[in-house]
Amino acid sequence: MNVFRLAGDMTHLISVLVLLLKIHTIKSCAGVSLKTQELYALVFSTRYLDIFTDFTSLYNTVMKLIFLGSSFSIVWYMRHHKLVQRSYDKDHDTFRHQFLVLPCLILALLIHEQFTFKEVMWTFSIYLEAVAILPQLVLLQRTRNIDNLTGQYVFFLGAYRSLYILNWIYRYFTEPHYVHWISTTSMFCVVLFCFGFTIFKWYLISVLLLTLSAWMSGFVQTLLYADFFYYYINSWKNNVKLTLQA
């Protein structure tokens, strides 16, 4: 596991913990979109269908359980907990989230890497995750009054997305066969989409900063290639066998 992936997972975990902290201790879900949370519960349930069949690592299994458990408990709190329920901004959270699900399902049926139930569901979860934040962004725009915890939640979520992109860039150069173009492209789309949306400044700033660092890492890779080409051209010019410095 590379540092971008680990940092991405950690910021994802922090975002969930921030939200749980707000809901569990302050007993408030003001400014939090139930629609987005329901979509995330659907995202994790369709993505982690392999949780009991394929074992990758203890880390993966534990994290999957945390994301499944936390997303369903957030939905439960917002729907059924007496105190939390009261702070839910129902009148502003009117995004028709069901209309996001169907296009994602159709897209997953059309564009996937393998036509099996698990794989199509995985692809569906990737597409849905890319747009699941939309009801939340719309709610933030409508209410305007954004408290610290909600702001931090969205910031960490944006950081997680961007760090995962860096992770895929890194993996593309170190283990190209592992890179799934579906997830990379859909994540890039959501970043571009957010730029167009221009709603939430911290989300945008985090994405911007991390995109800049993606370019930096791309630049470093180019330098490494330049190094290679230097030796390559030299060996060709002097007509000797190519050897690279350790």
């Binding site: 993966n60 994301f67 393998q114 995985w122 592992y178």
Partner: peptide, 10 residues
């Protein structure tokens, strides 16, 4: 080339 697609990420 592998039979199933591996998903080792979250």
């Amino acid at each position: 080339d592998s039979e199933t697609v591996e998903h080792d990420e979250l």
